[in-house]
């Protein structure tokens, strides 16, 4: 468990040094995207259309924040992660097309994403669920918002963050996944406990 502090844009070689259980803190640009933004971004790319934000080297955050608009400026009240498996069917394409370096979510992702992380040089990290207040504190500024027509939770929020974390690497570029390991050990534990009842 080694701790790293990164500034965006993050280099591919730095990401390839990371292993599961490492903890990272990021300063720079984080962009939120969940179900609908994922679908639209991939669709735009496949139709040859530009998307209005740059993920390359930046952080992709699975999050639907509580936001507030005062006068003409937005602020984030609370911004914890949402469950990542809902994006599993499309994340490998998203990684291939837009090249985020760090994906932040909760609950873990599966085989297709693990493969894409290794191929294109990115890591999947967990921001512990429910830490909405801590996340909001690290958000210094809302740089912009795109696709607000999707509703505030589903829009692309471009955020400037300082020391956003702890982000725990649970899937790395070496095809290691904590989620796979835990699935196996907890299943063995369950069978052991049930056999003793």
């Amino acid at each position: 468990m080694t701790e790293y502090h990164f500034k965006t844009p993050i280099k591919e070689e730095d990401i390839r040094k990371l292993h599961v259980e490492d903890v990272i803190y990021v300063s720079g640009t984080v962009i939120t995207a969940r179900d609908q933004a994922h679908r639209r971004a991939v669709q735009f790319h496949e139709e040859g259309k530009e998307i209005p934000v740059t993920f390359t080297g930046n952080v992709l955050y699975h999050c639907g924040p509580i936001v507030m608009k005062q006068d003409d400026s937005w602020s984030v009240v609370s911004a914890g992660p949402t469950t990542s498996t809902r994006m599993e069917y499309i994340e490998h394409k998203f990684i291939e097309y837009f090249r985020p370096r760090v994906i932040v979510g909760k609950g873990g992702m599966k085989e297709k994403t693990l493969e894409a992380l290794s191929k294109y040089g990115a890591v999947y990290t967990i921001f512990p669920g429910g830490l909405g207040a801590l996340a909001a504190k690290s958000i210094k500024r809302v740089v912009g918002v795109e696709w607000i027509d999707l509703g505030t939770p589903e829009a692309l929020w471009i955020l400037e963050v300082e020391e956003f974390g702890p982000l725990i690497v649970t899937m790395d570029t070496h095809r290691e996944s904590i989620h796979k390991v835990i699935e196996k050990t907890t299943s063995e534990n369950l069978n052991r406990i049930l056999s003793k009842l």
Binding site: V77, G80, G130, L131, G132, A133, L134, K137, I168
Partner: peptide
């Protein structure tokens, strides 16, 4: 477990901060 300990300490930081600043501890209220 060191990873688990790190998560628990960040949970403690989070509920301490939310209480001090009067903001929801989790965005899902």
């Amino acid at each position: 477990n060191p990873v688990a300990k790190k998560i628990l300490s960040s949970i403690i930081d989070n509920f301490t901060l939310s209480e001090k600043d009067g903001i929801p501890m989790c965005q899902d209220t």
